[in-house]
Write a protein that binds this DNA or RNA. Sequence first.
DNA 1: TTCGTTGTTTATAATTATTCTAAAGAAGAT
DNA 2: ATCTTCTTTAGAATAATTATAAACAACGAA
Lengths: 136, 136
Amino acid sequence: MKSKEEFIEKLRNSSLRPTKQRINICEVLFNRDKTFHFTISDLFNLIKDKTGEKVSLATVYNTVHAFHKKGYLKEIPINSNQTYFDTNVTDHHHFFDVKEEKLIDLKNEDVGPIEIQKSIPGKKIKSVEVLVKLED
Amino acid sequence: MKSKEEFIEKLRNSSLRPTKQRINICEVLFNRDKTFHFTISDLFNLIKDKTGEKVSLATVYNTVHAFHKKGYLKEIPINSNQTYFDTNVTDHHHFFDVKEEKLIDLKNEDVGPIEIQKSIPGKKIKSVEVLVKLED
DNA sequence: TTCGTTGTTTATAATTATTCTAAAGAAGAT
DNA sequence: ATCTTCTTTAGAATAATTATAAACAACGAA
């Protein structure tokens, strides 16, 4: 069980005032042991389920985007019509089960170091992401 | 300059009748030396520009999807609101210039072999894709 | 604490990418 | 030619996301 103060700190760091709605969002996002992969729609429904209170979709979008911008959430590139986010913001890779539309974390040691031998003048590497798609 | 017969063969292989519209689409997609990265919207506009004839958006979507299904086009996962495709269907990776929203091919030797050390029971690997994001 | 300022929530409208639909037209086989 | 089947197309429908603006809540100063 994470503390409310922790959530408030995350919110303040993201230049967001700690409101009831945002703290509910934090409960669902950060009050867990394992990493959490979700779409906005998943999150929206879970808030109602877990806290009993409804938060408007617009607020969910705004808050998730602010956390993403601040680096408390990571966006995961998948060929899909929905954007996936991850509460594990460390540098890591993913399996994506195409059939079940589910993401699974890969530890860095499961993939090994990736050396990019090419560079583009004037540009630097921001991130390196591996996506391994799984089929049956 | 690629031949019209080549396009017709690709279309037939994809269970598509070779119509004027589809051949125009092929001109833009396949009549080039270098690999081509595009969104549907890019393609739609280029057809008008390059062939002088307009093809409806629905036809562009249908044709691209058929080619994708048949393996003549590859879909590229990027965090974006638009789906990107690639005429280079060999196994390879990408740079993505976040600022300019542009994709750049990476040769396999630019990245080196990627060894996935983890496996999920009942699932096999369908693809391994590396996306390297670039910033200024 | 009260008041004023500024930030927030919300329902709803707007936007954007994509898919669907159904009618008119074109390709293929006989 | 003719018939059947596939295709094109404009426009409607859908779905994810973003914008809007009015009611409301947090904050800080007096």
